[in-house]
Amino acid sequence: MTNISLRNLTKVYEGTKEPAVENFNLEIEPGELVAFLGPSGCGKTTTLKMIAGLHSVTGGDVLFNGERVNDIKPENREVVMVYQNYLLFPYMNIAENVGFGLKMRHVPKDEIARRVDEILKLVKLEGYGPRKPNQMSGGQKQRVALARALIIRPKILLLDEPLSNLDAHLRDEMRELILTIHKEFDVTTVFVTHDQEEAVLLADRIALIFEGKLQQFSRSEDFYERPASKRIADFFGNANYIAGEKKDNKVATALGTFAVREDLKVPDGRVTLIIRPESIELGKNGENSFETKIARRIYMGTYIRYRIDMDGAFWDVVGDPHYNVDYDEDKTAGFTLPKNKIWLLEGDK
């Protein structure tokens, strides 16, 4: 199993001044499934291609198991990339496509045939060998592309937007397949996506990238509960904010003073309090409770969503899914911010 280290990795494309990737530092554990998440053009695919050796490195190093691979050609890295649009070679049939990597490694023909059958079975495409790529559906092509990558037992598997070209029902299927394969082959896997849901569903850890800079690298729970900035908090679902002054594990805001956990490493002074709409409790339950007006009641089918007036700003609150508590619009109601769900950011901008 292979660990990947990116040290001060930088890429500046020829003819551009702004780096596409700037000073990346990242340690990916052996056998880990990691997502590079960010909006398009943020440098995530560039980073992936530098790991694959398909793009040269402008500065910094790529290391596999501590060994610098900057100068190793892509064909010798044992790193396979699976592209978003599958890129099956059109004039080869499915078996030839899947066996391509083994052919390049001069594996005997009968062994290639055996292993191709084996892996096609694994991706549930048994008997599809003689077909041509244009006779396959999008989901099938994706599975062929995966099989073609896995057959050479790569050290590292790189996936470029693996789910984004698929229909909703195929996405679930493909997600399961990727997780199964990842478990079975125990291969260090990095995938690129712009969809935070895809990242959360698949990845052990997520590297969030904005404008070529790594923002945060952690488990998906941390992005929800401990975001490093407002922007990150917004990228992962909804977040409510209020500015305040922290002192002795209490934050004084325009709506009252809220107690926060002792282990938050934010110095006293101006802070921004963050809480997720689904973390706010309905009703006044002791500490950190307050009353305010319901500005909007939105029926969402499986639950009710409230928009509450927070001193001019509006917060979202996810209501009770069982409708045991139901507030009317324009009435005053009680809410509680559970102490352990409150997250603080330094500064109030």
Binding site: G53, N76, R77, Y83, N85, G101
Partner: peptide, 22 residues
Amino acid sequence: DPAYEEQARSLGAGTVKTFFLI
């Protein structure tokens, strides 16, 4: 699509093989 060439390289084909096979 030049990505076909990249795909072949990452599957283990050198530049010469990539040219002739892809």
